[in-house]
Amino acid sequence: MLGKSFSFEDKRKILGYFFLLPFFIMLVVFMFYPIIESVVKSFTNWSGMTDSFEFIGFRNYIRIFTDMPEYWKAMSVNIKYAFIATTVQTSLGFLLAVTIINLTRRWQNFFKVSLYLPVIIPAAAIAVMWRYIYTPDYGLINQFLRAVGLGRFAVAWTANQSTALGAVIVSNTWRYAGFTMVLYYVSMLDISKETLESARVDGAGRWAQIRYFYFPLTRGATEINFVLSITGCLRAFDIFYLLTGGGPGTHTKVVSMWIMETAFQSFKFGRALAMSIVLFIIVVVTMIIFRAILAPKDDFQ
């Protein structure tokens, strides 16, 4: 019990520790301990099935860098995906934001809410829906192509080497274009009306406005968007697993899928942990690089 010698303020502070207890127990058990455990066990040959393991030094890491072409092939899928998906999503999102910014407030809200809708739909639903849309016989796309007389272009979109990655990119763009649009839109609202108005009076046309105002002054949104999209693409799992299953063959197999197989199908937990730490480092380094390149300069405002 708290003695009488404690002041009111002391009692509050001691109570504070009790209030923090559940928070720290949860975080230590499910977040901080796992990170340490991950790092330690990545230096072992632990199978995950038994409690026995031996420390094998850097062997797991050396193996990833010297004798695991499938890991790097998967990484190249991630990188290609990150590059194309981010470019498409960012440019489309920017153009959409520039387009709605001139509409009345109510129309802006209407398009904001409609285009943001796909963002909140669960990944599993998005994947199942798009699988159906891509279905060779009765999917939306092929039905549409046949209806307009372009039936010869109808293919099995997710099972075809040349279209599978594109199919994932299209559904990813559908899912996130509204997100990017809102990021840019919010940041465009911060641009002062007077600045834009005086530019307009000086005869700046649409393109001049975009080039000298909307584009440079939304650099913060570009940065956040690049970082979120690229790191998301490097770690992508759900949509690939559900839409293409990594196929055809291993054509669209991404790093997360290899990690999951290594751990839970081949039961090489030690190696899988090393693989996820390498991925983690790549993601963090990418994030830092993009922040450094794209961060808005202070003198920019």
Binding site: V29, F30, I35, G48, S276
Partner: peptide, 17 residues
């Protein structure tokens, strides 16, 4: 700092826990 932790890092140990 925990905000930067990705799920791949915690999956395997959490499975064991």
């Amino acid at each position: 700092i925990g905000m930067f932790v990705t799920s791949e890092m915690t999956t395997v140990p959490n499975y064991m826990t």
